[in-house]
């Protein structure tokens, strides 16, 4: 019986992860040492420079990098907070709720801007706007819409052309998509009109920014709304077939955040990782490619569109609020 118990204990990690990771990579240090386990929503290629930098300074460590969607990260981490050292996610609301619910370790040694951290536990390290990505060929010879209003007009003028060829996040699946949607809805009624128009055009729903951008590039989509501008900008370096528009009426901007699990056994190393990550992102000289956009360190007041780290982020995570919002959203988009 006891052996069975020990066996169960040994196999436990395997039992916990029958999960399909979007990506799973181990970055080996020079020597076989301890391993930091990072749960992240950021594509590996974007985050690799940060890990490489860390391993260069701490060769006795290895990093296991696990990629999942923001919603999956939240669920997985809540179930097994002890199994991960660091959680990186673009869904600010889910991250803030993790901290609010007491899952994060206080990192008192890290000196960060007040507006870019919450409770000295959640640290923002990028500023990434939500963008509209347009297929260049489709808009050749006509004015490129710069605001949501102009986009609505463009879509209404040529419904046949755009039918089935507009896309956005499926807010039911994607935490980041839900965050962008709720913040847009909070800012302006225009969001709902846009969603209705897109719903009439049989909008395609996506889990992730990458696929949306690829589909716009290939022409499968002509317009993608609320795409991560940073991913788009990185892809544009190699692919000129699409345009990136930051809506000038109100560019919703999110900050990617990281926290250290309270259940980590490697608090110091994790804190050091977060510190290096912030330092790496604050250093505009870095030439790594692809890279995540740096944190804009100008005062928050100058850019009201940045979603601020405050308890109000819990609002749309409320079960009743979410139910209401999803219902409304589905009424608008799925027809």
């Amino acid at each position: 019986m006891r052996y069975l118990f020990v066996l169960t204990l040994c196999l436990w990690p395997l039992a916990v992860w029958p999960q399909d990771w979007e990506d799973r990579q181990v970055f080996k240090g020079t020597s076989d040492g301890q391993t930091l386990r990072i749960l992240s929503s950021t594509d590996t290629s974007y985050f690799a420079p940060i890990i490489d930098q860390y391993l260069k300074e701490h060769p006795d460590w290895s990093v296991e990098y696990l990629v999942a969607t923001t919603a999956a990260i939240d669920q997985t981490f809540r179930k097994n907070p002890d199994q991960f050292d660091i959680v990186i996610s673009s869904a600010m609301d889910l991250q803030l709720k993790l901290v609010n619910d007491g899952f994060a370790l206080e990192l008192s040694e890290i000196d960060h801007h007040d507006w870019a951290q919450w409770r000295q536990r959640l640290f923002a390290f990028t500023a990434e706007p939500a963008a509209i990505v347009l297929n260049s060929a489709a808009f050749e010879g006509q004015a490129i819409p710069q605001t949501r209003q102009e986009l609505i007009q463009a879509l209404r003028q040529q419904p046949d052309k755009f039918h089935g060829k507009v896309g956005t996040y499926d807010v039911r699946q994607s935490g980041l998509g839900y965050l962008f949607a709720t913040q847009d809805a909070r800012m302006s009624e225009t969001y709902w009109r846009l969603m209705e128009v897109m719903g009439n055009l049989n909008a395609q729903l996506y889990c992730c920014s990458g696929e949306m951008i690829d589909d716009v590039a290939t022409g499968k989509l002509l317009v993608a709304y609320n795409v991560l501008g940073s991913y788009a900008a990185a892809k544009q370096e190699a692919d000129q077939r699409f345009e990136i528009i930051l809506p000038s009426d109100f560019p919703t901007t999110m900050m990617r955040t990281g926290l250290v699990s309270k259940g980590t056994g490697q608090g110091e190393a994790s804190e050091e990782f977060i510190r290096q990550m912030i330092a790496f992102q604050s250093n505009a000289e870095n030439e790594a490619s692809p890279r995540l956009p740096p944190l804009d360190i100008s005062p928050l007041g100058a850019r009201p569109s940045v979603i601020s780290l405050e308890p109000a982020l819990l609002t749309y995570l409320d079960r009743l609020k979410r139910r209401t919002f999803i219902k409304e959203w589905m009424n608008a988009v799925i027809q």
Binding site: V99, N100, G102, D114, W118, R119, Q120, R186, L309, E310, P311, A312, L314, T315, D318, L320, K321, T324
Partner: peptide, 21 residues
Amino acid sequence: VEVDFPYASLSMLGTDSDDRV
């Protein structure tokens, strides 16, 4: 029952010390 409370309900609870809510 529907409780569609506004963003401000929790936003007003923001403090300098980032109190949990």
